[in-house]
C-alpha cells in the first residue's frame, strides 16, 4: 500500500511571526497523496493553500512536521537536492502564469531543461513538442505579451512538464481566466493526469475543477476540515 503513496505530509505546520503576533498559516496537516491522484485543495483566501504548496514544492521550510516525497523527508535535502526536486520531480503552475516576459513561448518552455542540464537542441525540440501538445504549435515564437491569458497558461503548463515531472502543483490555475478558458485549462490538466499518470494537486475555488478530481481536501485556518471523494 505504502508503495502507492507519492507524497506524505506529517503534522505539517508553518507559523509566521509578525510584530510579535503568531500567524498559523498551516497548523498540523496530515495527508497522504497517492501516485497518479488528482487532488483538489479548497479553502477560503488565507487558509494556507499557497503555504502548503510551497512546503510540498520545497520552496519553504516548515516550522514543524515533515514532507515526504517518494518516502524521502525533503527537510533533509540540501539546496542542490531541493533544486533537483523542483526541476525534475515537480512542475509548478501559478495563478498569474509567471512567464518570463523577454523570452518567447518556446524559450519559456525550454527554460527548465536548461536548469536540468539538457543540451540546448534537445531542450528546444522537447519544448516544441510540448507546445504542440497543448495546442500552441503555431505560437512558438510569440512573446507572452502577444498571447491571450488562456494561451499564456497553456505555455505555463507546457513549461511545468518540460522535465517530465511526476507531480504537478497548480495554485489556482484558473483563477485569472474566464469561464470557457478555465474549462479548457481544466480539461488539459485532467488529460495530463489521466494519460500521463501525473499526480495533480490543485488549489481552486472552481467547482468544475473540484468535480473532476479524485478527492477534495477542504482546509480552513491552516487545518484540514474534511476530505471528500470526488
Amino acid at each position: 500500500m505504502s508503495l502507492d503513496i507519492i507524497i506524505e505530509l506529517e503534522d505539517l505546520a508553518k507559523y509566521y511571526t509578525i510584530g510579535g503576533e503568531v500567524i498559523k498559516a498551516l497548523d498540523g496537516v496530515n495527508l497522504e497523496i497517492g501516485r497518479g491522484e488528482y487532488l483538489s485543495i479548497v479553502g477560503p483566501s488565507g487558509s494556507g493553500k499557497t503555504t502548503l504548496f510551497n512546503l510540498i514544492g520545497g520552496l519553504d521550510r516548515p516550522t514543524r512536521g515533515r514532507v515526504y516525497i517518494d518516502g524521502v523527508d525533503i527537510s533533509r535535502l540540501d539546496a542542490y537536492e531541493l533544486a533537483w526536486l523542483r526541476c525534475r520531480k515537480i512542475g509548478y503552475i501559478f495563478q498569474t502564469f509567471n512567464l518570463i516576459p523577454v523570452l518567447t513561448a518556446l524559450e519559456n518552455v525550454a527554460l527548465p531543461t536548461v536548469f536540468a542540464g539538457v543540451p540546448r537542441d534537445e531542450g528546444l525540440r522537447k519544448a516544441e513538442k510540448l507546445l504542440t501538445s497543448v495546442g500552441l504549435g503555431d505560437r512558438l515564437h510569440h512573446k507572452p505579451s502577444e498571447l491571450s491569458a488562456g494561451q499564456q497558461q497553456r505555455v505555463a503548463i507546457a513549461r511545468a512538464m518540460a522535465n517530465d515531472p511526476e507531480i504537478i502543483l497548480a495554485d489556482e490555475p484558473t483563477g485569472n481566466l474566464d469561464l470557457n478558458t478555465g474549462m479548457e485549462i481544466i480539461s488539459l490538466l485532467q488529460g495530463l493526469n489521466k494519460t500521463r499518470g501525473m499526480t495533480l494537486i490543485s488549489a481552486t475555488h472552481d467547482l468544475k475543477m473540484i468535480k473532476a478530481s479524485d478527492r477534495i481536501v477542504y482546509i480552513r485556518d491552516g487545518r484540514i476540515e474534511r476530505i471528500e471523494r470526488g
Binding site: G57, L59, A79, Y80, A83, W84, R86, C87, R88, Y92, F94, N98, I100, P101, L111, P112, V114, F115, A116, R159, A162, N163
Partner: peptide, 16 residues
Amino acid sequence: YREIGTMKCLGALDRH
C-alpha cells in the same frame, strides 16, 4: 524578483 522566484521554482540553482 518574481522572475527570479519563478526560475528557482523551475529548478534554477543559485549559480544559474
